[in-house]
Design a binder for these strands. Structure first.
Lengths: 335, 335
DNA sequence: AAACTTCTCGGAAGCGTTTCCGAGTAAGTA
DNA sequence: TACTTACTCGGAAACGCTTCCGAGAAGTTT
């Protein structure tokens, strides 16, 4: 059906090696021969088969990106960063999304196969020993983004400190009843940022001598609708907080919706801080913690590409900065 | 370095065909033999090489998704739809983003190669004859999403009608000065929805006997920041519109930001309608045209998978519904 | 004219699978 | 016992490419 390099060689009256040389510029070919080959390629509409090439080369020129919580705006922003550098390279991206533990396991079992991809970029997933073993078995270069592991290069964000500072900022404004709206602590996929942010919250409260009230800690899946639900519960309490730190901007926006519905004015009656600084945080005038999402994607792939190209490259851990962006959802209480 | 199926066969004392049979359940193997093989696989940490498999099978078990305007929330939503069905299948996704004409050309030249992917899912890109030829040359099943072509199966949305209805809704509210904020008509990537929506706008105006004033037509790249800029210009005009139809929700939100800054109240002084009904439209209480973004992704892949599995399958064109979602950014003028 | 050197190129071997022909063995039948 | 049938399995061939050994031609040197 389709033409192969042999057909081209026959058509051009040359050997297959010569055709390959022309295709890849892998060795000098006289001008006359080159033209014959190009003519044959053109005549036969020949397009090389990449499976053959991959098998022969032992490379796939593609890398896998593994993304949990694909519904989250933050992850998309990272992926955008990845794509922005990939477009300029000769690599393909294989995208794997994982939303639950079985999917995670399936991906870790099937993706790190030799000959499947040349590298792995893993977002926001903490590696268990088992996973690590599976990856190392395949000997595939791997980079973690928003996750830490001593044996794997990673792009890391100190969200404990970031959250602590955000909470301290609220405390400095005069807030004492500061609630935390976050994701479940025991993440089924083994992400640690849930715990980290909660930890940062506790540290901030403690540093400022504030009491962490159990009813001020609420969790919900990190989407706007959930933020709304959780916000409702929190704000209907007799003893309601004057400020809320939300795990991510989407949750924060949901909380603000809840407040709006309960006719609680933001910020005069309630201050809200988000996390991520997604595009829409600007629209909502949301005070938030900016982490360089796009940039983590960019640095992640770049690190990975370096690791692939230079076998003993080891960049270890890269830590990126965060910054509190103060907009209009935070003021001193009773003002 | 790595083990092959031959190593496993030797270790287990069987033939390579038998190992392959065990791996793929492709023919009956006695229990005893099967166990020997499994033991060998386990001992050698054998993982089959997929390039070999692909070459031998003549299939790649992966499909390419080509996405322009990857920065747009709408595209992401479609991609989510795609991923939701892909996770359940055995296919991989190769992601290609294209932001400009050279990138588009590069993708169309390199991706539709035999042995590279088994199918193509193309978002929002109008096929030129040249592109079509390149694709058909590779004989790769292809499905278009949010784009139409007589020779290719596609998921299509009648955005002319949708826009017309939205504009008519504004007119029915009593608006006469209705502006259009859109993307450039001559899209460098050859998307047609820009033109379609503008066409729908004109039709709606005409149906209601309203004049399309040139200064009420403004274009800008479809992001919030651009909506803000364009909105500023539009609203600073002496003769400013009382209603604005925006090409997409992101632009609409930018327009609303501009209005907010100019202290023009939405909706009492200015009605705004968006398009897409992205997640955040709900937060912003934005009246908008809902198109089933997620669903287009789902249907797109499903169509593609069917086309791949059953060679002569031809579903032609699927048209999806749109619906005007009225929220709180549209009221009658001077109310 | 013989001995090198330099270019150019043909095609066998190899990458790691799957498939499939055919052979060997065990079980069933007359 | 002789002949079928059923089950199990070995391994050559094929998938389409790249690499590399080595050979032939052409040019250069002594």
């Amino acid at each position: 059906m389709s033409n192969t390099i042999h057909d081209v060689a026959r058509q051009a009256g040359v050997g297959i090696g010569t055709v390959s040389s022309v295709l890849n510029n892998s060795r000098p070919v006289s001008q006359a021969t080159r033209e014959k080959v190009l003519a044959a390629i053109d005549k036969l509409d020949f397009i090389p088969n990449s499976s053959g090439r991959r098998l022969s080369m032992g490379r796939t020129d593609s890398i896998a990106v593994i993304i949990p919580y694909f519904t989250s705006v933050a992850q998309i922003e990272r992926l955008r960063g990845v794509m922005s550098v990939i477009v300029e390279s000769d690599y393909d991206i294989n995208l794997f999304t994982v939303e639950n533990a079985p999917q995670r396991d399936k991906v870790f079992q099937t993706v790190p196969r030799r000959g499947r991809v040349d590298g792995l970029l893993i977002f926001s997933l903490n590696m268990r020993d088992k996973d690590l073993k599976q990856i190392q078995q395949g000997k595939i270069p791997t980079v973690l983004v928003e996750s830490f592991h001593p044996e794997l290069p990673n792009i890391y964000i100190d969200d404990i400190a970031a959250t602590r500072k955000a909470v301290e900022y609220l405390a400095d404004l005069g807030h004492q009843n500061i609630a935390y709206v976050g994701d479940v602590l025991e993440d089924p996929l083994g992400s640690s940022f849930n715990q980290n942010r909660y930890l940062g919250y506790c540290q901030g409260m403690e540093n400022k001598g504030l009491h962490v009230h159990p009813s001020f800690y609420r969790v919900g899946w990190h989407r706007r609708a959930k933020g709304y639900q959780v916000g409702m519960k929190l704000l209907k309490q007799t003893n309601r907080p004057t400020a809320i730190f939300a795990f991510c901007d989407e949750l924060a926006l949901g909380v603000i919706e809840a407040a709006r519905e309960l006719e609680i004015n933001v910020p005069s009656d309630l201050s809200v801080i988000g996390y991520d600084d997604i595009e829409l945080a600007h629209f909502a005038q949301l005070t938030t913690v900016r982490q360089h999402l796009f940039e983590t994607g960019v640095q992640g792939v770049e690190l990975l590409l370096n690791t692939i190209d230079t076998p003993n490259y080891n960049a270890g851990s890269i830590q990126l900065e965060t910054k509190l962006i103060v907009r209009q959802t935070t003021v001193s209480p009773n003002q």
